Structure formats: C-alpha cells, structure tokens
Amino acid sequence: MRFRNPEFFLFLLFWIPMIFVYVRRERKFRPAVRFSDLSMIKKMPVSFFVRARHILLVLRLAGTGLLVVALARPQEGRTDEEVSTEGVDIMLVLDISESMRALDFKPANRLAVAKETIKEFIHKRQHDRIGMVVFGARSFTKCPLTLDYSVLDQFIDGITFTSFSYQTAIGTAIATAANRLKDSPAKSKVMILLTDGANNAGEIPPVSAARAAHELGIKIYTIGVGKEGQVPMPVQMKNPFTGEVVEQVQMVQSDLDVSTLEEIATLTNGKFFRARNEESLKSVYDMIDKLEKTEIKTKIYTSYEERFYPWLWAGFFVLLLELLLQNSRFRRIP
C-alpha cells in the first residue's frame, strides 16, 4: 500500500492546538450551579461517565486522523510481471552401445552415470526446450523438444541397452538430432553428443553430418567418456557343461575416437570435452550449462486502486459518534 498525497499528513499537526485548547478549557471550567455544602456530594462515588468524559477528545482526534488518512489517498498496488525469454533448444544425444557397460565409472556403468548427470543438467535449465536422441547401430528420438522436464526425466529413466546396441552410429545420431532442430525458431540451437567409442555403423559419416548441422545453425558440444587403455567390462559367459550363464568382468580396450569428436565440435563452433570419471563428467555439463545461458527479459507493471473510502466513512462515523455523545450522555449543564 502507498499514499498518493502523503503531504496531507501535515494536517495531523492540528492535533497539537486541539489538545492544548481542550486541556486549557478543562482547567478553567467552573460549574455554574453552586451548593452551600458539598460534603455529601464529595462522599458520593464518581460515575463512569464522569471518568470517561475525555473520550470525546479521543474520538475527535481519531475521527480527524481517519479523515487525514483518507485525504492522503491510500492506494493498493497490484504488480504484473511480464517475462519474455529467448530460450535455447537443446538436443541431448546419448550413446547406448555395449561399450557403455564399462565399469570404469564405479560403482555404476558409464550409461547409468551419464543418465543421472544429464538429469542434473536438465534440472538446472529454465525456459529451454530439451529433447533426447539415443543411438547404437541406429538412432531414434527418445523424446522430442519439450518444456516438460518431468516427462523428459521419465524417458531418461527408461533408457537402457537394446538389440541394436552392438555398434555405434555417431553420424546417424547427429543427423537425427539435427532433423529435430532444423525447424526450431530458437535463437540458439545446441546439440550435446556423449559417446565412448568410434563410429562403426550407419551410412552417414560423423564429419559430414556435423557440416550439415553447422549449415542449419546448430552448435555441437562433444563429450568423450571413459578412461584410456584397458577398462573393466562385464561379460556374460555360458558354462559349456551346465549351460548356466554367469557374468564376469574382463579388461577390454577402450576405442574412443577423440580426433573425430574434436573435429565435429570445431566444425560447428562447439567444444570438445573429455570425461574420465563421474566427477569430470558432471563438471563438463556444468561448463556447458554456463556457456549456454538463456536470455530472460522481465517487465514489471504496477497498477493502483483507491482505498480511501473505508477511511473516509470511518472518520465520518467516529466524528458523528463524538457529536452525539457530546450532546447526550456527556452533555454539560451550563
């Protein structure tokens, strides 16, 4: 609440002469009716109305105070906020090939850690449309661009290894994600590609797909996950005598194609990141989050409504009450 004309509060200074005149009059007042002997009257108890006679002054001050507040025009404001955003459209491209089963991101495998890290990244974004593409020997859209992050979380939770996880088609995955972004009206179109291997499937070379994405105005951040050299990989082995299938951990060679990922990022004005463990993977997504910020413009409008009527009516009522009491219960006999 605000007061449109606060200068009217200066009228409250008139309370000073009002109080001064009242006190002076009370001290000079002498009763007009004289008695020869006041001893009997002095023994009588003082009535409540005699003690409460000063309430007239209180009512007068309160009434005039309420009228002054009404003159100051109290107003109640309502604020409307208009937010305009220039969000970023982001396609998350995730490798679900068999090599993502590697356990160098202990205690979970690479895919499980990547899924949780991606979810954390999504929760930090606001006003951005985000989609998901997964790929192995072929790629498909797991979730189109959406602002409903809770639905996207559910899709990510459902990501697992499939029957086409035996190979890695990076070029096809880039083309699939670019197809989702090509008609986007967003000012910034971004692709975040996470993989731990080399392109060994699909008919589209990764570099050719990156050049096409660049022509569409898409920036690609590439993330190479996993340690170099030998990494632990769970492998299912079948006992030839009992037929029982058991899981064993064997050391296999990591085949990450760093040079291709760097070239993809360079061609599209993106950046290549290397993540060798869970902590470094989280820091990579944090850096990307800082690099791709959404522009938010806020306009605030405030409209005010008059609220002086209750004060005005209350002031009139209090002054009317003071006038009625002055000429009835608290009337003085001359």
Rank of each mutant, 00 (worst) to 15 (best):
P144A: 09
P144S: 03
L145N: 09
T146R: 07
D148C: 00
D148G: 00
Y149W: 11
Y149M: 12
L152S: 05
D153R: 10
D153T: 14
F155K: 03
F155V: 15
F161W: 11
F161N: 10
T162S: 12
T162H: 04
F164G: 06
F164I: 13
S165V: 03
Y166Q: 15
Y166G: 11
Y166M: 05
T168A: 03
T168P: 05
G171I: 02
G171D: 07
I174Q: 00
A175P: 01
A175S: 14
A175V: 07
A177W: 03
A178P: 04
A178I: 01
A178N: 05
R180M: 10
K182Y: 09
K182Q: 12
S184Q: 13
A186R: 10
A186E: 15
S188V: 11
K189R: 14
V190C: 05
V190A: 00
V190P: 06
V190S: 02
V190D: 02
I192E: 04
L193I: 10
L194R: 05
L194N: 14
T195Q: 04
G197M: 04
A198L: 13
A198N: 11
A198E: 15
A201T: 09
A201I: 09
P206Q: 08
V207W: 00
V207A: 09
A209H: 06
A210E: 00
A210C: 06
A210H: 00
A210Y: 00
A212H: 05
A212I: 12
A213C: 04
L216D: 12
L216Y: 12
L216R: 09
I218K: 02
I220V: 08
I220D: 00
Y221Q: 02
T222R: 04
I223T: 06
I223L: 07
V225C: 05
G226Q: 15
G226I: 11
G226W: 09
E228M: 06
Q230K: 14
P232R: 00
P232I: 03
M237W: 10
K238D: 01
P240I: 01
T242F: 07
T242E: 06
G243T: 10
E244A: 14
E244Y: 11
